[in-house]
Design a protein around this nucleic acid. Structure first.
Length: 479
RNA sequence: GGGGCAGUAGGGUAGCCAGGUUAUCCUCGUGGCUUUGGGAGCCAUGGACCCCAGUUCGAAUCUGGGCUGCCCCA
């Protein structure tokens, strides 16, 4: 039914990652265009469950919109800082059939320049504010570096981008904080640990006043950016002339924010929880939360096979009725083959039921996270499943949190060594040249000043480069 | 950004250096019979040399280009 060998995640994470995407049928990488991939049904179900959580969180205070994929060249080029950051990465549509277009059209690398000209017409008075919208769309970037499924793509298929406009700067700041809370809630539900930092000035979003980012730690010791939030201030409002009439009749520019999450969140779930046997999915997002494997003997004298099937069907219907995503695997394969298969797929809980269980009026639970086995009476299956799934969700989160450690550098540790293990913290002043020097000397990137990092308290101390006063920043090798 | 390696059935591979009959093995698909508490067995059967040029009597194999993928380092 499947390949024989286990995969060593620790030995070579890159190879493990590619193999898992293939074997667990998340993404098909055989599409013959560089940097774009095909979602398999199972992968898409996982994606949709993850984005369902995000959608629910966003819908509280945002409204969903849908803007076009194509952006006029002149509008894309309007914001000078913005386009400088993207111009080498834009895909252009230059022809309609054989006719060259008068105005070339860009495939959106992100949607500021698609949305903001329309914001200008939508917003007239303070009563039109705030605007809080989001969309989940594909975006295109001509990546020249090594592309990677879900992580570095030429077509990002699942970019959730939110854009807000406010009457005051304070309100925009408040919105950033609300968005941080939403994202924290989101990643907590995925059991994905993270640090939050304010990116250094030289690494902020092009056109933004400042950028705040979420990073998670991948198994190879590198960090991956999984969410960003940008304070745009009035920068884009000036470029696109987005003004409103205030209560006192004056005309003022809006203050804007935008923040986004891509399918890297799916990559994080896969990379962080998976093991040598395959995916390990948090119950909250597992397309199949429980798989039932009947153990059938056709030759047993008493032929209890019908009874086994009946019992399995009964459990199946009960669980389904309770809203649990359950699958009954009554295929003709042998039980062992099914175990390996569903473990690869990351199903959090397996229920085995055979003649031996039937005589005890029970079934056997096997957890995907720790392989613990136990007998459960048939009349308590639903509540036991709910309780076990909750427990698995929490255990996965706790286990992942433990792996995200931050090494606070003091006199005893050499940054160059510590950086190989993961994230380090050390004091740095806010001088750009110091930051660049530090990055070069240890071969890593400054993530930024610490806004949140579990179990780490930011210190004030002498800058690691120039010895002027500085504050802890997080540093890591990045994706 | 720099360097290396690779592309042969759905997946993984041998063959390539040294060109030559029907392209190896495992897995897989299909039909059948017997099976089922950790990857079942037997029988029958199906399926491949990335693309474009070049060299040659003859190319999976040699040469050039393209496309795609992977690994390592910065």
């Amino acid at each position: 039914m499947q390949e024989e060998s286990v995969l060593k995640k620790e030995d070579n994470f890159s190879v493990w990652y590619n193999e898992i995407l293939k074997r667990a049928k998340i993404l098909d990488v055989r599409y013959p265009v560089k940097g774009v991939y095909v979602w398999y049904p199972y992968g898409l179900k996982l994606r949709n469950l993850i984005y369902g959580i995000l959608r629910t969180l966003m819908d509280d205070e945002h409204e969903e919109v849908l803007f076009p994929l194509l952006i006029r060249r002149d509008e894309l080029l309007k914001e000078k800082e913005h386009i400088k950051g993207f111009e080498e990465e834009v895909f252009w549509v230059t022809h309609g059939g054989t006719t060259e277009l008068d105005v070339p059209l860009a495939l959106r690398p992100t949607s500021e320049t698609a949305m903001y000209p329309i914001f200008k017409v939508w917003i007239r008075s303070h009563r039109d504010l705030p605007i809080r919208v989001y969309q989940i769309v594909n975006t295109f970037r001509y990546e020249t570096k090594h592309t990677r499924p879900l992580i570095r793509l030429r077509e990002i298929t699942s970019f959730k981008e939110a854009h807000t406009a406010h009457a005051s700067r304070e309100e925009a700041e408040t919105q950033i904080n609300k968005a941080i809370a939403i994202y924290r809630n989101f990643f907590d539900q995925l059991a994905v640990p993270y640090v939050i930092t304010k990116r250094p000035d030289w690494d902020k979003f092009p056109g933004a006043e400042y950028t705040i980012a979420f990073d998670t730690l991948m198994p190879d010791g590198r960090t991956m950016q999984i969410a960003t939030l940008h304070m745009l201030g009035e920068n884009f409002a000036h470029t696109f002339d987005i003004r409103y009439e205030a209560e006192d009749g004056s005309s003022r520019f809006v203050n804007q924010t935008c923040y986004g999450i891509s399918e890297r969140c799916v990559a994080a779930v896969i990379a962080i929880h998976g093991d040598d046997r395959g995916l390990v999915l948090p119950p909250r997002v597992a397309p199949i939360q429980v798989v039932i494997v009947p153990i059938i003997f056709s030759s047993t004298g008493d032929t209890p096979s019908e009874k086994v099937k009946e019992a399995c069907n009964a459990i199946y219907n009960e669980l389904k009725g309770a809203g649990i995503r359950v699958f009954l695997d009554d295929s003709p394969d042998r039980p062992g083959a099914k175990y390996y298969y569903w473990e690869m797929k990351g199903v959090p809980l397996r229920i085995e039921l055979g003649p031996r269980d039937l005589t005890n009026v029970s079934c056997t639970f096997v957890r995907r996270d720790n392989f613990a086995k136990r007998q459960v009476p048939l009349n308590t299956v639903v509540q036991s499943v709910n309780k076990t799934l909750d427990d698995i969700q929490h255990c996965l989160h706790a286990r992942a949190m433990q792996k995200l450690k931050i090494c606070a550098i003091n006199g005893d540790t050499e940054p160059k060594d510590a950086i190989r293990e993961g994230i380090i913290a050390l004091p740095l002043c806010d001088n750009e040249s110091c930051g660049k020097k530090l990055e070069e000397s240890i071969g890593a990137n400054v993530l930024g000043e610490v806004l949140y990092a579990a179990a780490h308290r930011a210190r004030r101390n002498a800058c690691a480069i120039c010895a002027r006063e500085g504050e802890d920043v997080l540093v890591a090798r990045t994706y």
